[in-house]
């Protein structure tokens, strides 16, 4: 079951969005329900707090009563896994930071084939809907929310006694154990070694002979045990 929460003040655009969802979901034959709003009113706020299954938000950046940014901030305060697609009348370029900070799936400009782009974004959203998407923990007074897709692998530094989370943009050294972190990951992550967890979605090649794993960003590691080799035979 997928729950689409749509909020758009323009009636025509709102109707077009709902039509696009209906058209796409009819083809997919996945059960779904639309929750349609024209403003960020009390009912909309209730929908944020309600435990609807697999929420996909399609939101307008600005409505008469509130800003979509304020709304999305409220959503993210207690829900890191729902999918958010934003529609905007302004330049998309200025909102890259919002996209990364609030983990939006897409920013769609209303002036540029928005229905086509929306269809693509919904298809992408359906693939990841219901999955755990974020690794969330606190360390040294800092709250970390790292999208699982961005994590390449996690290793243990025996000298510093810290875990190193390797992502596309940075390495995070945290005072957590590998098993603690593993509990928070989804099924895409596997132990390749007792000191290393890899994101299988990011693995490109596995050289079993030389025990080398190569990732999609061309990075390599040589932490691989026999158990992992056995498990991945036939998979990669």
């Amino acid at each position: 079951m997928v729950s689409f929460v749509v909020c758009e003040d323009n009636q025509i655009i709102n109707k077009n969005i709902v039509d696009t969802i209906n058209k796409l979901m009819m083809k997919n034959k996945i059960p779904y329900k639309n929750y349609v709003f024209y403003d960020y009113n009390k009912n909309f706020m209730k929908s944020i707090d309600s435990k609807l299954p697999n929420k996909i938000y399609i939101l307008d950046i600005e409505t008469p009563s509130a800003s979509g940014i304020d709304v999305v901030r409220k959503i993210r305060e207690h829900d890191l896994n729902s999918i958010i697609i934003f529609l905007t009348a302004h330049d998309e370029l200025g909102y890259t930071i919002l996209k990364q900070e609030f983990m939006f799936l897409a920013f769609i400009c209303k002036f540029d084939d928005y229905l086509g782009k929306l269809e693509k974004a919904i298809k992408k959203a359906l693939k990841i809907a219901g999955q755990k998407r974020v690794l969330s923990f606190s360390d040294h007074g800092i709250i970390y929310n790292l999208p699982l897709d961005d994590i390449i692998y996690i290793t243990r530094d025996s000298v510093d006694r810290k875990c190193i989370i390797k992502t596309d943009y940075s390495e995070f050294k945290v005072s957590k154990s590998l098993s603690e972190l593993f509990e928070q990951l989804n099924e895409n992550f596997k132990f390749s070694h007792r000191a290393c967890i890899v994101n299988m979605e990011r693995v490109r090649t596995i050289d079993k002979k030389n025990k080398i794993i190569t990732f999609d960003n061309k990075e390599t590691i040589d932490l691989m045990n026999d158990e992992f080799k056995k498990e991945v035979v036939g998979v990669k």
Binding site: I97, F102, M103, G141, I142, I143, Y144, L146
Partner: peptide, 11 residues
């Protein structure tokens, strides 16, 4: 003051 990291954004 609270500090947080969301993806590559430090807040």
């Amino acid at each position: 003051n609270y500090k947080s990291i969301a993806a590559n954004i430090f807040s």
